[in-house]
């Protein structure tokens, strides 16, 4: 029972990381209608930046996290300006392939700078752990902080998209670019802003992910990226609560599946559940159903 509780917490914690990454995917997809495959690699860059800040430049953890966020935000804007903006009118497949190119580029830059050997990441949010039930249940500070960060980010983003001018502009652009432009919204700036927020979140996710699973390689970001993307689709792409639910469910299925079914089949279970959900609800759990017009 206590074992189960511990798996449950681990699942929610991993799911929170997925949810934060999924938010970036979801927002970018909602506004630019593109699958940003480079998102997972932005996570990796964020993790490496914070790693360097601690290991080589011996900055305090807070400064390392801020540095990672700043670098990733700038990187997100740069990628959008250089690679995606010229393709605004191109077919979605061209944009997809460009995103893959950017993903390879980031991975290979990381490979050249930091090498292929995995680095062991020192947790940035380690403040000891809480022991309950006479030492049977350990809850690490990473678990707490990941879940707390997830909740804070979700509330902040919901408020941001609902209340602020920029947030409203984002929703307008994601619904109808042309009409938004006619209303005086700067579409390009809004899209850049979305990429900036998504990439900043990716940096936080990178720090949290590597604090809990301390192996850092140039390909660290790709599998969590794909899974977070799955989570975004799972919950209904374009929806903030959807990303939260999708991410947490995915994390739970993965951890519980690995614990109780089979370690090898954990990932297969995640994807199998995704397929079943999409077959029953083709637009995800909280996705809006779009009626087809003839």
């Amino acid at each position: 029972m206590i074992q189960f509780l511990s798996y449950l917490l681990n699942g929610i914690s991993l799911g929170s990381v997925y949810a934060i990454i999924a938010l970036g995917y979801s927002m970018v997809y909602g506004i630019a209608k593109m699958l940003n495959f480079a998102h997972g690699d932005v996570i990796m860059i964020g993790a490496y930046m914070s790693f360097c800040a601690i290991q080589y430049w011996s900055l305090p953890p807070i400064a390392a996290i801020v540095l990672a966020i700043v670098v990733c935000t700038a990187l997100g804007i740069l990628i959008e300006r250089m690679a995606y903006k010229p393709l605004r009118t191109a077919t979605s497949l061209s944009v997809l392939i460009t995103a893959i190119g950017v993903s390879w580029l980031l991975q290979n830059i990381a490979l050249l700078i930091w090498g292929a050997n995995p680095k062991s990441y020192q947790s940035l949010v380690n403040f000891g752990s809480l022991t309950l039930f006479d030492g049977q249940l350990h809850i690490t500070s990473e678990t707490f902080i990941t879940i707390a960060a997830n909740i804070i980010i979700m509330i902040a983003l919901t408020l941001f998209t609902g209340k602020t001018k920029m947030g409203k502009a984002m929703r307008a652009v994601s619904e109808d670019k042309g009409a938004a432009e006619l209303m005086g919204i700067n579409v390009n700036a809004t899209i850049s802003m979305t990429f900036a927020i998504g990439s900043g979140l990716a940096a936080i996710a990178g720090v949290l992910l590597c604090s809990s699973y301390p192996v850092l390689m140039p390909t660290t970001g790709s599998m969590p990226g794909i899974k977070a993307f799955t989570a975004a689709v799972f919950g209904g792409i374009g929806s903030i609560p959807g990303a939260l639910i999708g991410g947490i469910l995915l994390g739970l299925i993965e951890i519980l599946g690995k614990a109780y079914v089979s370690t090898e089949l954990g990932d297969a279970l995640v994807f199998a559940v995704l397929i079943i959900v999409l077959l029953v609800k083709p637009t995800g759990l909280l996705g809006k159903k779009v009626h087809e017009k003839v």
Binding site: Y29, L35, I226, F229, T230, V233, I237, S262, E264, L265, D267, A268, F271, A272, L274, I275, L278, L279, P282, T283
Partner: peptide, 25 residues
């Protein structure tokens, strides 16, 4: 083939990963 567009893409991706996982077992 009941799905369309990006949803179809993600499900094919999922099947590709499932096949790989199953072969490992």
């Amino acid at each position: 083939l009941r799905l369309r567009g990006d949803y179809l893409a993600i499900v094919t991706l999922a099947f590709g990963e499932i096949i790989r996982n199953l072969i490992n077992c």
